[in-house]
Simulated scan of single mutants.
Amino acid sequence: MSLTVTALVPAHNEEDGLGDTLESLLDQTEPFDEIIVVDDCSADRTGDVARSYGVTVTRPERNRGSKAKAQNFGLPLVRTDLVLPVDADTLLAPDYVERIKAPFADERVAIAAGCVQTRFDNTPTERGRSIEYLFGFHFQRPIQNATNSPVVCSGCCSAFRTEELRRFGGFPERTIVEDMDYTWSKQIEGRRAVYVGGAMAWAADPSDLRFLRVQVWRWMAGFFQNVRIHSAAMILRKPVLFLWILIACWDIVTAPLWYAMPFVLTLVLHESIGTTLIWWLGVETVLLWLPLLYAAHRRKLSYLRVLRNFPYVYLNKMVNIYYAWKALLVELIGVPLRLTPGLTTYVKGRA
């Protein structure tokens, strides 16, 4: 029997881009059984735009304050086997529903996620994010999936078993990143999370440094909130997932040393600049370019376009490192010691 599925779209002041998202939802080879837009007290025409597409629109009496809370407001209206939250700036490929439903033939699967790429690469931050996504979704995610331990099922386009999600209490509100929280929680319970590389989605990412900082701070704070909450249980019940978390933490801790190494070798150890740069760039090339070339080939992207975007990834990396360290100090050290309150306010990473 074919599973039924509802698209759940949380939207706050999204009149400009919501129409494109809804068109992609309505243009599926396997149609959604229902599309629900949660107009989270928008001050613009978000609700009118949604109604013009003939979808169900619901609006709370007051702004819910976060994506998870807006989704939970709409969850009681879902009457299908699966619910697929979609960000109001995200487009789904026409065969997305068809592909994302397939893993749920396995009763052990609680959540399935697709492959997210950038919609735009016009600004430096968007170009840097395009490289991050190419690397992450074509190298890291497939490896994690092969070990049955995806680190996160992206909240912009993952599918959930509706009743199981309801029994859990809905989308988690205890952390600032509900997608990672649920992904870890379900795997610790013994349920499966699955990455579906052929299910393509395109998200609008921060277009400038101001919004990139907001988004990365939320992501990094949420990551360490989940490390704080789940680590003990993960060690006992999902050690492979914990290994990926340890690797991520190791990358965060050692990243400043790696990027400072050329300066240390030349200024402190008096190695030649030429030798140092050849060695450092050689390692970077092996670690980054081989996966990127594979990703570009698989997605039929222009190699020149990837090459053009590549330098900008280092702008994003510097932002990532700063906020990862800030999150580590605040969420993993400051909060347990009651020195800091941690991040609780949800702010979108774009206008």
Rank of each mutant, 00 (worst) to 15 (best):
P76D: 11
Y294I: 01
A199G: 07
T285F: 15
G342Q: 05
G47I: 03
T46V: 02
I229K: 04
L82K: 10
F223S: 05
V330K: 13
F73L: 01
T254S: 11
P60A: 01
W325N: 05
L265N: 00
V240L: 12
R141A: 13
A93L: 01
P239M: 04
D39K: 03
M180S: 06
A70W: 01
S272L: 01
L265K: 02
Q71F: 13
R62S: 13
Q144L: 08
V240C: 09
G334D: 14
V78R: 06
A260W: 10
D121A: 12
L292Q: 06
V319L: 06
N148W: 12
V38Y: 04
M1S: 13
T46C: 02
P336Y: 01
L343W: 07
R191I: 02
L329Y: 07
S158W: 06
E331D: 04
Q187V: 02
D27P: 10
R237H: 15
L8C: 06
K300D: 14
A296S: 11
E178V: 00
L287V: 12
V264W: 15
N122L: 14
T56W: 07
I247D: 06
G170Y: 02
I229H: 14
D20C: 03
L22Y: 11
P256T: 02
S185G: 11
L329S: 09
L92F: 10
I235K: 08
M318D: 00
V330P: 10
W244N: 09
I247K: 08
H230P: 11
D44A: 05
D44Y: 09
L165T: 00
V283D: 04
T162L: 01
W219Q: 09
V38I: 13
T345A: 14
D16Y: 07
L328M: 09
T183R: 03
E15S: 10
T344A: 14
D27S: 15
W280P: 04
P124T: 01
V306K: 00
T125G: 00
A324V: 01
R79Q: 15
A295L: 02
W184L: 14
V109Y: 11
